[in-house]
Write a protein that binds this DNA or RNA. Structure first.
Length: 314
RNA sequence: GCCGACGUAGCUCAGUUGGUAGAGCAACGGACUGAAAAUCCGUGUGUCACCUGUUCGAUUCAGGUCGUCGGCA
């Protein structure tokens, strides 16, 4: 590689390809990597798990076309991984990719993972305290969420004000942070954001709602043919039936079918399709407010053509 | 063919003693700072089958038409 290319590569942007589930991000990222001599970083909160491939639509080796991928199979399904851990790891991968003079292409649909990776969380160490968390869980059981929200109102009135009474996850998290660090959650949010050190170009893959839903429905049926139920059985056999990661579209419904809560495979597929549509909607809500995203209409075009459009827009 | 019931939101249904209507599910929208495929919040989107009549006013009452279901033939 010439030094001119080296130089231009150091100022080359990191590509971030987003879009709702089933929008075709994975294939477009591979096409971009092929065109740019790049490598792909997945930003997906479920593809990080080993043994969870079919329902997470983790691309096969064939689908990866020899492009190196990062972010798959990081931990076992009973590990609770965090967006912060992901961001730290992913920044490392991207630095390495760039140091090798290659293009980094991020593809993913997990809004919080992308935010953590690109914009950063509050600076400072990972604030996490198992013991505090356990105590809070216990007190939530005994005294109810209202009592905890009341305590949060005293310790961090600003965050408490915008937290809804039933939002167990956020109430517990905010209390954990205050108790473990002594700093208010809302104050931490106001501190510097720790943005990624490289230039970033955001692209979103857009489909008409009807077309997206058709893709989702088709993919759910395909997952069944690929062996979705065998994968669910395998995870249960390995002892992960109660793991938090199983609370994911495809696995929950698969388990419900296997233990008789869902009567037929058709019903299971319909539920997977419906829950995937709802997930896609939540993803779109997250992406719509990100004004940096340059949306590319997919229409009937294939991944290579969409990648071309992205490359031409540079 | 006759008799009866029914026809209201995408679906299953409620309701209006005549003043243009509401539940559940679905759908749609939003929030999101280290569990995020998680967690949570908000919103009725309607020729009340169609036509005619009575009435100040009809989704509601009457007659007819069409459709669905059931019974009898």
């Amino acid at each position: 590689m010439s030094s001119a290319q080296q130089t231009s590569n150091t100022s080359n942007p990191v590509f971030v390809i987003v879009g709702p589930t089933a929008s075709g991000k994975t294939d477009v990222a591979v096409e971009l990597a092929l065109a740019l001599n790049g490598e792909v970083v997945s930003a997906d909160s479920r593809q990080i798990y080993r043994f969870m491939d079919i329902a997470t639509a983790t691309p096969s080796l064939a689908e990866r076309h020899n492009i190196p991928h990062y972010g798959f199979d990081l931990v076992d399904p009973d590990v609770v991984y965090s967006a912060g851990q992901f961001a730290t790891a992913a920044r490392g991968w991207i630095d390495e990719i760039r140091a090798r003079g290659k293009a980094a292409i991020v593809a993913g649909g997990s809004g919080l993972y992308l935010q953590a990776l690109i914009d950063g969380f509050f600076s400072g160490d990972d604030i996490k305290d198992e013991q505090v968390r356990c105590e809070l869980e216990e007190r939530a059981e005994r005294f109810g969420l209202d009592a905890l929200l009341a305590e949060l109102t005293e310790l961090d009135p600003e965050y408490a004000a915008k937290t809804l009474p039933a939002d167990r996850q956020r109430i517990l998290r905010a209390l954990e942070v205050v108790k473990a660090s002594g700093v208010r959650f809302s104050e931490l949010h106001q501190r510097s954001r720790d943005e990624a050190p490289w230039p970033v170009r955001w692209f979103g893959i857009e489909h008409d709602r009807e077309a997206l839903y058709e893709r989702i429905n088709r993919r759910a049926r395909m997952m069944l043919d690929l062996g979705l139920l065998a994968e669910v059985r395998d995870l249960i056999d390995r002892g992960y039936g109660d793991a938090y990661s199983m609370k994911s579209v495809g696995y929950e419904e698969g388990m419900a079918y296997l233990n008789g809560e869902i009567d037929s495979i058709d019903e299971m597929v319909e539920r997977i399709q419906q829950n995937t549509r709802r997930y896609a909607k939540r993803q779109l809500t997250w992406f719509r407010r990100n004004e940096r995203i340059h949306w590319v209409q997919a229409g009937n075009r294939n991944a290579e053509q969409i990648a071309d459009t992205i490359l031409m827009s540079l």
